[in-house]
């Protein structure tokens, strides 16, 4: 009961509050409804998009791009991160560069991607990868660097090979921090994807959003926005939340 209250009822309260205040603002008639539609209207448009078969293909295309781009970013980012963490020279040479590049909003890579790959899937994938890869690199590097030296000494004491130190000590020891890093990287990938899809017209949620704008259909814009928020929340909760909770329980962290 208590758990149910904490993890379901209280968050629900926030959403109900949002929709209520939204409804109140609409009823005050400050703006005409074609500029500020009611929640009911938005939900109806959302239902129409869903049943007419426009929404799900868009969701599917976006999630597919996200999945592929994120996987590539995780592989590359993890390798570079491990390399940086274990080799002082690499870190000194490339560390600053990577931090610098990380501050560049990933959508800035789009013009370059369009020139390199043309107007196609690869360009958008490139933007997604660039959005996530550096933050994952930095997270992995930090995760390895902050492994308590004690664990490494246990590995050395038992005369593990270099490869086994990675496999049996470093990788499992960095896992909790790594998952947190992945979560952050995922958020960057998701944002980059949406930005990319809006600027660069192809199927996907970002495009549905722009179509809504072109048709002056604010209700559609809001419906798609809600969809994007909901998807983000679901992935965060179901994928990363579950993984984090499992690890924290195993390691005995107290989570509040």
């Amino acid at each position: 009961m208590n758990k149910f209250t904490h993890s379901f009822l209280k968050p629900l309260l926030g959403w109900v509050g949002l929709f209520l205040s939204w409804e109140i603002v609409v009823r005050l008639k400050i703006w005409p409804t074609y500029i500020f539609p009611s929640p009911k209207r938005v939900l109806m448009v959302w239902w129409d998009l869903l049943t007419s078969g426009e929404l799900l293909p868009g969701v599917f295309v976006s999630l597919q791009r996200l999945g592929i781009g994120f996987m590539i970013a995780v592989c590359i980012g993890t390798l570079i991160g491990l390399g940086l963490a274990r080799n002082k020279n690499l870190k000194q040479v490339f560390g600053g560069l990577i931090l610098g590049l990380q501050t560049l909003p990933s959508i800035c890579w789009l013009p370059l991607a369009l020139l390199w790959f043309g107007l196609n899937e690869k360009a958008i994938l490139f933007v997604v990868v660039m959005g996530a890869v550096l933050s994952i690199t930095v997270a992995v590097e930090g995760a390895v660097r902050t492994i308590p030296p004690m664990y490494l000494r246990v590995g050395k004491m038992f005369k593990l090979s270099r490869w086994n130190i990675y496999r049996r000590i470093i990788l499992p020891a960095m896992l909790p921090t790594f998952v947190t890093g992945l979560k952050q990287g995922w958020a960057f990938a998701w944002r980059s994807l949406m930005a990319g899809e809006m600027l660069f017209i192809t199927a996907g949620l970002g495009q549905l959003l722009m179509v809504g704008r072109e048709l002056n259909n604010i209700a559609q814009v809001m419906a798609i926005m809600l969809t994007i928020i909901l998807l983000g929340l679901l992935i965060d909760l179901l994928v990363f939340g579950v993984a984090e909770r499992h690890l924290h329980k195993q390691w005995g962290y107290i989570k509040r």
Binding site: M150, Y151, V154, I169, P172, W251
Partner: peptide
């Protein structure tokens, strides 16, 4: 070791 140094995972 001075610390038990068990691996928490």
């Amino acid at each position: 070791f001075q610390d038990p140094a068990l691996l928490p995972w």
